[in-house]
């Protein structure tokens, strides 16, 4: 589904990713862990095409297409979704309105028929309910005045409504209380399927108890320093990243 090959990327002229290679097959969930500042969010922005994140070498194929050649909205239409580490506030625009523009923006790009107001309302209400989100939340401006945990839950609501083929979750577990973590994990698991893949960025092995990954990678020194099964996450939790950071620096 997603093949990243020898990816080099820079921000403000500073190299952050240095030859990252990673492949995620359809239906798989991969976890990416790594120290603060190692480039995990950078990877998510490079994949989603944010301005200022310059790819200096390497390639990324997504469902057979050259992902890096697409605009951000085209990547979204191709099925890529990013749950932001720091979700953005949009004053004056309700969650409902925002979601409607997103749903129909994707449909238009895909040449599908747009949802009418009734169909849309039904869809959103149903997804919101599954995530324990109130109608009141849907009427509020996007992320404005939301608590940290509410923002994260809102990201998952958007993912549930947009049903992407590939989701990158950037520290979606940070700031969630135990109950919210379970709800979010349920939401994510509900989306798992043979045709859907995910890249879950996290600092905590706790999340991986709920969302069980097929592979775990350690990002250090701008590349994948180590890959393994779920047990790698457990090892990291007890040993820390020191060994990988040293290895990457060497």
């Amino acid at each position: 589904m997603l093949e990243i090959e020898n990816l080099h990327a820079a921000v403000d002229g500073r190299a952050i990713l240095n030859g990252l290679t990673l492949a995620v097959a359809p239906g798989e969930v991969h976890a990416v862990m790594g120290p603060n500042g190692s480039g995990k969010s950078t990877l998510s922005y490079v994949l989603s095409g944010r301005d200022g994140y310059e790819v200096t070498a390497g390639r990324v194929r997504f469902r057979g297409e050259d992902l890096l050649a697409l605009d951000p909205e085209e990547r979204a239409a191709a099925g890529l979704f990013l749950a932001f580490q720091y979700p953005v506030e949009i004053p004056g625009v309700t969650n409902m309105t925002f979601l409607k523009h997103a749903v129909n923006g994707l449909k238009v790009q895909r040449g599908e028929e747009e949802l009418d107001a009734m169909q849309f309302l039904k869809l959103v209400r149903q997804k919101a309910k599954a995530l324990g989100m109130s109608d009141d939340m849907l009427k509020r401006a996007v992320n404005v005045g939301f608590s940290g945990g509410e923002k994260k839950r809102n990201e998952i609501l958007q993912m549930a409504v947009l049903e992407p083929a590939f989701a990158v979750l950037d520290e979606t577990d940070s700031g969630l209380d135990i109950d919210a973590l379970k709800i979010v994990a349920d939401g994510v698991n509900a989306l798992r399927g043979p045709e859907r893949s995910m890249l879950v960025i996290t600092h905590y092995q706790r999340l991986l108890d709920y969302i069980v990954p097929d592979r775990v990678h350690v990002l250090a020194g701008g590349r994948i320093a180590q890959s393994g099964g779920k047990e790698l996450a457990t090892r990291l939790e007890s040993e820390g990243y020191a060994a990988f950071v040293e290895k990457a620096a060497a």
């Binding site: 909205e73 949009i90 958007q158």
Partner: peptide, 21 residues
Amino acid sequence: FYCRQRGIGEEDAVALIVNGF
């Protein structure tokens, strides 16, 4: 970027944000 990542084209995103403003 947040809007575009969700599939909202650039001009629609500007209109949306400005309407919110």
